[in-house]
Nucleic acid binder design. Structure first.
Lengths: 257, 257
DNA sequence: GGATAATTGATATATATCAATAAATGCTGT
DNA sequence: ACAGCATTTATTGATATATATCAATTATCC
C-alpha cells in the first residue's frame, strides 16, 4: 500500500487479541496496540474515549515507519493528521528565515502533536522529521470533532493539550529572547535530561546543529558554551553522550539568563 | 460590588430590550449587549451558541471598566475567566526575566483571550493591562465545558481559537529570534496599521517602551530604527501619530529580516 | 514646574560570521 | 571484515557586527 511517493505503509496482518484491531507483534510488546497505546498514559489525549469511540478514529489510522532524517510532516503543506508517536524520537521545528531552523520541541513515545491549523485550514505550521527510526500513527482529525458531542471530556482534553502547547511556546518565547546563550544551553541540557531521556548520562542522537537550533544560536556558539560548561565541571561529554555533573549550577545559570 | 481590591464592578440597571439582559446604554449603541457582541463578528468564539446556551454563560458574566495602566489579568495568578473586550485597547504581555516585558498581542473590541491554563489549573501565563480605558467582560470558564456536549461546533470554535493563538506564537517566535531590528520594527508597524487601527495615519496610545517590548528590543534601539525609517521616507511620525508612507518597502524590510 | 517619556551620542558586549583544522561517519571495493 | 577515501560533523581561533548599556539632553505631560 503506497500512501504517497516514497512512503509505503507496512502491511499489517496480525490480529491483536486485546483490541481486536490489526496490529504487529501486539501480544509480545503489549504497547503496540492502539487502545493500549492511547490509554496507557495519564496525560494521554484520548484517555477519556470509550472503546467504540476509539474504534471510530483508530479505523482510519495509518501506522508508518520513518528512517532517520525523513520528514513526517512538512511545513506549509496541508494535512489533517494528528500525530501520535509510538516509538523513536522526532524533532518539531519551524523552518524560519534564510534557512534557519528553530526546534520547538522533541517528541517521543506517546507524544501527540496536534497541528497548527487544526480545524482551521489544516496547513501545518512546522516540520516534523525523524531523528531516530520513528514509528508513528497518523490519525485523521476529520473524525475528531464528531466525538465532541458524544464525549465532552475528550474536547476538554484536547483543549488542555492546546493550552499546554501554548504555554510551552510562551515559555520558549521568553527563554529564547531574554536569556543569554549559557542560560539557553543550560535549558536545553536540562530539557534533554529531565523531559526527554530521563537518564544521566544520556546519549543524544542529535547533531550540534540540532542542539544549536533548539537553543537559538549557531553551532559554533553552542560548542563554545558546552566547552565552558565542561571546563567548569558542570557537564562531561563524550561524543554524543552527555552527563550532567552539577544540575543545581545549571539551574542557576538558567535562572540568571 | 467589589471583586477584589481596587476593582469595583459597575452596577448595571439598564434592561436591554433585545437580549433581555442587564446592560448599559444598549439601545443606543446596539453593540453593548452580550448577544450582539458575541454574535456580531465572524471570527467570534461564541457564534455557534444558541440563545439559551449563551444565557448560561452570560449569566455569571462580569462587565468591568479599567483605567489606562490598570491590570486586568495578572500573570501567575489563578483565574477562570475568558476575557472578551467590549471597548478599548489592552496589551497582553509576559513578564519575563530581569523585569523585561514581552508584549505578545494587543487586544481590542470583540477580541477574546482564553487563558494559558484553560482547564489546566487556570494559572494565567501572561499579564493583561489596559492601554486606553477598557471595558471588558469576564466570562467564567467553568461553564464552558458543559456546553461541549450540547454544541460541538462551539468546542471546535474554541479549539480553532487556540490553534490560531498557537500559530501566532510560533510566528512571533520566528520573527523575534530570526529577524534583525529593522525587520521587527517593520512588523510592529504593519501590525499596528493593518491589524489594530486599520487606518493610516494612526494614533498609537502606546509608549516607545511598549513598542520596543512588542519588537523585543530596547526603547533606544526602537527610536533609532524609527528615525532611520523616517529619514528614508518610509514613515512619518508626529508624537504618537504614525503614518506609513511606503508599505511595500516595510514589507520588504520585514521579509529580509 | 517637576516628573515622566523621547531622543541622541559614545561605548561596551554578546553573538554571528568567516576560516581553518580535526574528528567522526559513511561508503567503496576488495 | 577492513583499509582507504570522501563527506559530513565538531572544534577552535580571529574578526566583524548587531544590539544593549550608559549618559546626557530635550521634549512632553499632568
Amino acid at each position: 500500500m503506497i500512501l504517497k511517493e516514497g512512503i509505503v505503509l507496512k502491511e499489517i496482518n496480525f490480529e491483536c487479541f486485546r483490541c481486536e484491531k490489526h496490529n504487529d507483534n501486539c501480544e509480545k510488546t503489549l504497547n503496540c496496540c492502539c487502545k493500549n497505546c492511547f490509554k496507557s498514559d495519564d496525560t494521554n489525549l484520548l484517555k477519556h474515549l470509550e472503546n467504540n469511540e476509539l474504534d471510530s478514529i483508530v479505523e482510519g489510522k495509518q501506522q508508518i515507519r520513518y528512517k532517520p532524517g525523513e520528514t513526517i510532516i512538512k511545513q506549509n503543506t496541508s494535512s489533517t493528521y494528528v500525530i501520535c508517536v509510538r516509538d523513536g524520537l522526532a524533532k518539531v521545528y519551524v523552518e524560519g528565515i534564510k534557512g534557519k531552523s528553530l526546534v520547538v520541541r522533541l517528541i517521543k513515545k506517546l507524544d501527540f502533536v496536534t497541528g497548527g491549523d487544526l480545524f482551521n485550514g489544516n496547513v501545518q505550521r512546522f516540520t516534523i522529521s525523524a531523528v531516530t527510526p520513528v514509528t508513528c500513527c497518523l490519525i485523521n482529525t476529520t473524525k475528531l470533532s464528531q466525538l465532541f458531542s458524544e464525549n465532552n471530556r475528550f474536547a476538554v482534553e484536547l483543549l488542555r493539550h492546546h493550552a499546554k502547547q501554548n504555554n510551552a511556546l510562551l515559555d520558549k518565547l521568553v527563554v529564547l529572547t531574554q536569556k543569554y546563550m549559557p542560560g539557553r544551553v543550560a535549558d536545553t541540557l536540562l530539557y534533554l535530561k529531565n523531559d526527554i531521556f530521563k537518564t544521566n548520562p544520556f546519549s543524544v542522537p542529535l547533531t550540534r546543529q540540532d542542539l544549536a537550533d533548539m537553543s537559538n544560536m549557531t553551532k559554533e556558539s553552542l560548542v563554545r558554551i558546552l566547552q565552558q560548561f565542561k571546563s567548569s565541571n558542570l557537564i562531561k561529554t563524550d561524543g554524543n553522550t552527555i552527563e550532567i555533573l552539577n544540575e543545581e549550577a545549571l539551574q542557576e545559570i538558567s535562572k540568571n539568563g
